[in-house]
């Protein structure tokens, strides 16, 4: 079963390019064009990774990120913030909102795919090792 990824941006071309590369990489890609829509999809689909643009109408990326990280059900979603500003202040705000990673526009789509693979793999390994630990403890 393919991993689910949510891509959120108000720019249709960016949605198009990210969706294209992620689908080619074998992910089940969901799209949202603003913050509210993103939260809806997040709750419905429970993607493992969310690529989230910062500058959007109807709740910006930071706000969405804060809600995700404050929600026990959604907290484990890996949030990758797309910042157009590459400025320190944007990064600080993102960290405060609880973002897991930052990508600065203009980004490389293949790099994003790469990172998502790595993240999911690491997460799986972590989960596996934790499970292993649990098993040993049970013994």
């Amino acid at each position: 079963m393919p991993e689910r990824v949510l891509v959120v941006d108000d720019e249709p071309f960016i949605l198009r390019s990210l969706s294209f590369v992620l689908e080619r990489a074998g992910f089940e890609v969901h799209q949202a064009r603003n913050g509210d829509e993103a939260l809806e999809v997040l709750r419905d689909v429970r993607p493992r990774v969310c690529v989230l643009d910062v500058m959007m109408p109807k709740r910006n990326g930071y706000e969405v990120c804060e809600i995700v990280k404050g929600d026990p059900d959604l907290r484990d979603t890996y949030v990758m913030l797309l910042t157009a500003k590459g400025q320190e202040s944007a990064r600080v705000r993102g960290v405060k909102a609880g973002a897991d990673e930052f990508m600065t526009k203009p980004f490389s789509p293949s790099r994003i795919v790469e990172r998502i693979h790595e993240v999911l793999h690491a997460s799986d390994a972590d989960r596996a090792s934790r499970a292993a630990v649990q098993v040993t403890e049970l013994r």
Binding site: E11, I14, S17, P106, P109
Partner: peptide, 12 residues
């Protein structure tokens, strides 16, 4: 924003 599009699609 347009730069990202240009870069993304040309890379694809």
């Amino acid at each position: 924003t347009p730069l990202t599009s240009i870069r993304s699609f040309s890379e694809i």
